[in-house]
Every structure is written in structure tokens, then in C-alpha cells.
Design a protein around this nucleic acid. Sequence first.
DNA 1: CATGAATGAGTATTCATTCAT
DNA 2: TATGAATGAATACTCATTCAT
Lengths: 226, 226, 226, 226
Amino acid sequence: MTKKPTKAAAASAAQAGSQMLEAAPASNRATRAAERRAAIVEAAMEEFIARGFAATRLDDIARRAGVAKGTIYLHFKDKESMFEELVRVVIVPVVARLTTLPPPVGSVRDLIEAFAGNFLKEVIGTRRGDLVRLIVAEGPRFPSVADFYYREVVSRGVAAMRALIELGIARGEIREKDLARYPQILIAPAMIAVIWQSLFERHAPLDARDMLRVHLDLIFGERRTT
Amino acid sequence: MTKKPTKAAAASAAQAGSQMLEAAPASNRATRAAERRAAIVEAAMEEFIARGFAATRLDDIARRAGVAKGTIYLHFKDKESMFEELVRVVIVPVVARLTTLPPPVGSVRDLIEAFAGNFLKEVIGTRRGDLVRLIVAEGPRFPSVADFYYREVVSRGVAAMRALIELGIARGEIREKDLARYPQILIAPAMIAVIWQSLFERHAPLDARDMLRVHLDLIFGERRTT
Amino acid sequence: MTKKPTKAAAASAAQAGSQMLEAAPASNRATRAAERRAAIVEAAMEEFIARGFAATRLDDIARRAGVAKGTIYLHFKDKESMFEELVRVVIVPVVARLTTLPPPVGSVRDLIEAFAGNFLKEVIGTRRGDLVRLIVAEGPRFPSVADFYYREVVSRGVAAMRALIELGIARGEIREKDLARYPQILIAPAMIAVIWQSLFERHAPLDARDMLRVHLDLIFGERRTT
Amino acid sequence: MTKKPTKAAAASAAQAGSQMLEAAPASNRATRAAERRAAIVEAAMEEFIARGFAATRLDDIARRAGVAKGTIYLHFKDKESMFEELVRVVIVPVVARLTTLPPPVGSVRDLIEAFAGNFLKEVIGTRRGDLVRLIVAEGPRFPSVADFYYREVVSRGVAAMRALIELGIARGEIREKDLARYPQILIAPAMIAVIWQSLFERHAPLDARDMLRVHLDLIFGERRTT
DNA sequence: CATGAATGAGTATTCATTCAT
DNA sequence: TATGAATGAATACTCATTCAT
């Protein structure tokens, strides 16, 4: 079993990717363990994204993480729970950052554009975007992952969008009142962009930023030139 | 080895699912083979959708199709090419039907609504919707499938949408001229609906038809009451 | 899963050891399968006896049986149930033969000596004797095996012994009336002989036949010279 | 490496089980080590009895003994030699006690009954009885254990029994002169009782004491009423 | 001495693929 | 053609053993 209290915290600090690791401080026992755990998470994410859950070999994860196969089992109960925990560990900090909205100064469109900018930078075309596609892919076989993702990401995102939309309607920036019933519409092009980058980028690159601007023009009924 | 010329045609005629099989009058050799092939395709689709490519067992496909395991290899070279052919066989007739647009009478909005209605009926919440999710899931591991899907479905769909959008702009029904550069926006909510039904229906059902109407209201800048 | 009806019967006919296989008749499908199953049982018995349950490798069983590893799983669900079925398949015919008593002519001592002679020939110093030791060894970890062995062998053997003892008492051949309460005493030296042969034969060989005669002399209070 | 001279002596003093440990007054280095070693031996015996050699995990032994896994290797070279030493450490004091016969006063039957009484108390239905079954179980894979057991327990026990039997014959208490050639007969029911308790107690409890009395009645040709 | 994280060889089990019938 | 028994490579997971702290 994983020893959550200590390691989870450390791993969370190390976050999801070696590129984000700060300089390693005092290399004590707990720190080493956290680093290894982070390396496993990072490696597992790469492999799962590249091959999907079933086709990913723990051998490859271990090799990529630079640990022995057995070491994985010091941190995760089995392949399934590794996948589930991995999604949590990688998703949570992203959600935290995305939902930390800037103070509501300026227009609603500015707020939404700030939000979309974050999304563009943090998700689209990144490993995390691929992770979203992975969740779409494996969700049906991992109800716990789908549940977690709905609860932590989707429902919160929808709620946040709805609040912004209602604010926009109240302030007269948004004319389409029914939009508040379907905040999914607001995010749909962004989600499509995520999937598009994963699947079709080499066939036809997509300027996600510009597409989102056009979509917001539709919603706000005006023209922006960025 | 699969004997493509003969069987592929037959299977294509039998299309994608036993429920669509017409009565087989003369039960000659070729017809029997086509029926079996169709049964395998149908069964394989169900299994692949339910478990994904890697986790699906040929044993289960064979059992579901009511044939012996070895029989599958009389129709398909191996599991991979079965998956690839399956996508082709199932997708092609759908595309054919979806792209058979009604004659361009009435407004562009009517045209698009007709198109969306077809999509709702034929895809969202159906096996074929699940197949779309499956393609999103397995695309990265099956470039040939992603290529095929892009070529046969996505690029055509985008082109068709673009044509409609340009017509709408020309006729003054659509004000947002940049929309023609991103026809993906038009389909984005429909795609989201497809994925939503697969993953989150039990958490929060989504009225796809109504959502699409709202989205069209945004684009056409008017209100419709269904 | 094993397909009991057909195969079990065939395997039962082939019994527990190639040395007992009759000439192979028409080598049809079912017969081939039964032969393989018998070969696996035979090989498994050898390996389990030599190494115990946990230390036995299915690889070795397969190699010894001359089949591929996967073939074992066509006949047995897993290692545990292979062990359990193996005990049944090997034990049952022995019990059948041992409990087929000769007609009760002559003295009770003659009857018991006939029984003991069978036991000596069929069990002590044979593979089946080793199997008894194996059951003693693995019984605690295989309650189902211990249960089966108690039900099919021990309780029947005890009952048969008790009947004979009571007959001996009734006829005045046996003076110790309390012996009927502990038929185990009658078999104890035979069991010890079984275990002795497995463990200490090379330290000090034991003439089981003579020992049993002495033991019967004790019980019947007379002298026999074989 | 184990440092036999020192530790073996200490462990031997600590004997077989923490419940037998006297209060440790001066808790110096050597004493602490001996206590740990005794704890490991005790824990190992429990685990080996419960699961057999191969299926026992050093992790479980360490946990039960309250030491770290690595500590085991400070006392024993490896799992195999731990098992071998364990048998020695546990068996030796039992033999010592059992072979410390009371002074030969009274009849031979009294002597044998005293011996049997000891055996009943010290072995049957106790951990040590289970250990006997364990030796029977693992003997074939641990020739050194079987050798040791034969040399230290079986051959001594047989010799002691033979001496008693010959004394009984000389004194006219035992009529069956051939019994001296098979002292195993004398102990057979006791051994059966040991195994019976391990395997079949829950199916049919066995009054070992009464059974032994009946057996002695057979040998001494008289009736005793406990 | 004592620890327990890390290792990696070892094993049960699965499943795509073949081929004799 | 169709079958399904047989195969054996592939893979998740375990656990005795080591060694840095």
C-alpha cells in the first residue's frame, strides 16, 4: 500500500512531470521516495497516453521511470489503482490553478478570455490535453476515473462557466439567455481543440486561440481583434 | 487471408449490424459468408466499444458472433486489421447517409438543422456515437484509423459545414464571417454531446437536441422554439 | 473450465498414471483430450509429490506431461483446482478397489489380512503412498482436500475397520472390545509405514508386511508365521 | 552470516517460544539479540506451520516477530537455513524432556504410560504436534531436516521404545516377542493422533488419551480403567 | 546492530494465432 | 469452409535478498 500522508504530499509538491521539478533540496529518505513516486507518475502518464491502459506494460513504465519493476508496487497497489491515482495527481493541481479566477474586474468577456487563455496554455497541446483524451478513452472502463473527473473537473467547470454566463446575461453582455442552461457550449470548441490536437494535428493544424476568439465573438455578438 | 474483393463488397452490403440485415433469400455460399462476416463485424464493434481494442478478446467476439474463433481468421488477417476494417465498414454508410443532404430549399438554418437532426438520430446516444469515442480513444495507436477517419469523415464534414456556413454568410443569415474558418465550432457541441453521453450521462443527462438549438440560435442570432 | 462430463469419464478410465494406460484405441478427438488430461494429472502428481504444492511450477508439469503451458488451462481452472481434482482422480479408484472386500469367508483375521495385503500392494511404497503424505502435508492449506479425503477415504476406512473389528469381537477372535471405538489403531502401523517409507527409508528400511503381521498378532492374540 | 557459537547458545537457552522466555534481567547486547532470535524462531514456526515452507513470507515472519525484514538476515543465512535451524531449536528441548524418563520403578506399563502421558501433554494437539506434521510435509524437500529428525528424534525414540519393550518381554509383561523388532507399532497410534488432530479434528474429534490406553491394553493383554 | 526501501528473478495466467480434423 | 484444441510469447505481480542509512 502507498503511504499516502507523507508521500502524497511530497508527490503533490513534485507535481506531474520532471520538467516541473524544482531543485532537489536535502535528499532525505522521504524526499527520495517522493521523487521516485513522481518519476513513476510521470513515466506512467507518458506510457498510458501513448498506448492506453491495457496496452501499457509496467516494465516500460519502470524502465522509463528508472526504477525496478517491484518499486512500482511500493507506491501503487496495482496497475488499475496506479492509473486512477495518476489521474488524480495530475488533474488536481491543474484544476486548482484553473479555478483560481482573477478578480472580477472588467467585462465578463475579459474574464472568460482570461479563463480560456489559461486553458490554452495549461491544457491544449500539452501532456495534460493528452490526458483528457486518455480519460475520454478509458472512462467507460474506469468508472471511478470518470466519476472523479466529472466531480472534480467537469461539474466544477460547468458551474464556473454557468456563473460567468449568468453574470454576462445580467450585465447585458450575452443576449442568448438559454446559454446558461448549456455551459458546455462555451467549452465545446476548447474540448474539440484538445482532441483535434491529439488526433489530427498532422493532417490539419488548428489555431485554437483564434478559434476560441471567433467562438466568443459568436457568444458576445461583437468583433475582437485580439 | 481475407479475400477482399468478394467479401468486402458483401459485408458492405450487409452493412453494420445484424439488425440492418435484410432477409437473405438465396442462402448460397457467398451470402452465408457475408452474413458471418457481418455478424463478426457487429460483435467486434460491441466488444471494442465496451472494452477498447487491447482489452477485447477474440474469444468474446467469436462467441458473440456465434462463430468459432478460427473463423474470424478466414475473414480478417488479424486483430488489428479487423479493427481497421471494422471502422471502415461501419463508418462509410453513415457518412454516405449524413452527406446526402436534402435539396437546398429553404434557409441555411433549415439545412443545418436537418443535418443536425440526422446527426442526433444517427449518432448521438447510439452505437455509432460510441464508435466515435472509440476512434478518439484508439486513434493514436491506429494512425491508419485516424487517417481514414480524418479523410472520410472529418475533412468531408468540415468541408460540408464550411460550404453551408459560407452560404449562410452569403445570404446574410450568419453575421460572423470568421466562422467559415472554423467549421469545427459548428459541430463542437454535437461532438461534446456524443462524448458526454458516453461518459457522464448517469451523472447528468444532457438534452442534446435542445443544446444544439441554443447553439444555432447563437450562430444565427435569432430565437427558435423548436 | 474443464468439461467434466466427457473428459472426466475418459480421464477416469485412463486413471492416474501412464503405466496404467491400456492400449490406445481409436485416437479420436475425445480420446486424445483424455490422454492429455491423464498425462497432466500424472505429471502434476509427480511434481506435487516431489516439491509440494507451492514449490511446484506449472512449467515443469507441462514439460513433464509433454504439453504446452496453456494446455493445462484447457483442463483445469488454475493450480489450486488442479491439485484438488488431481487428488480426487487419483484417490477415487484406489478407494473403490480397496473397499471391494473379498467375500467374508474364513476368519476375520483372514479378512483383515486380505485388506492389509491390498493396502501394502496398492499404497505403501508406491506413488499413492506419497500422495497420502502429500495430503497430510497440504491438508491444512486445502480444507477442501482434507474434507474430501476424510469423507471418501478416512471415514469409509474407519467404518469398514470398525465393522470388521465388531465382527471379530462377536466371533470371539478379538478380545479387546474397546478396539471397536478406535479402529484407527488397526490402521495406525500401516499409516506409519506409508510415512516411514517416504521419509526414512534410506535411513532404516522397514518391512511393512512383517510389521503388520506382528500388529495383527497383538490384536488377535495369536502367532502367525505368514 | 549467522554467528553460530554465540547466538545459537543464547537462542537455545531462550528455547522455543516467547511464552517460555524467563524474565530477562540484565538487558545487555547478547540478551537482546537472543530475545530477537527467539522471537523470530517463534514467529517462523507459527508461519511455517500455518502455510508450509514455500508459501511462508519472510515479511510475515518479520511482522509477527516485531522486527524488520533485514534483521532476520542478521540471525539466519537465508530462508532455508532458518527453517532447518528452527526445527533443531524447537525439537531439541522436547526430545531432552521426553527422553528424561522417570526412574524405572514400577511396571513397564507404568513407564510407558508415563512416557505416553508426556507425549500427550507435550506434543499432541500442541504447536509441537503441528511441527511434526510440518516435518512430515517438508521432509522430502529438506533432507537435512529429515536426517536430523531421524537422528535426533526417531532413532532415539525407537531405541528407547525397543529398550522398554525388551524389558517388558523380559519381565513377562509383554507376550508378543516380535514387538521388539517393530517399536514403531508402540508409537503408531500416538503419531496418528498427532496427524488426526491437525487434519480431521473438526470432522471427528479423537480422544487420544483413551485411544492410547486401549492400545496399551492390546500390548499388555490386560484391562486398565484409566 | 537494525531498518525497510529497492531490486529483479521467478511464476501463474491470459490470449492472439495456428492447424489438424 | 469451419472448427476449437493446442500453442507459447507476453505480462502483472510476488517475494527472497541486499545494502545505504
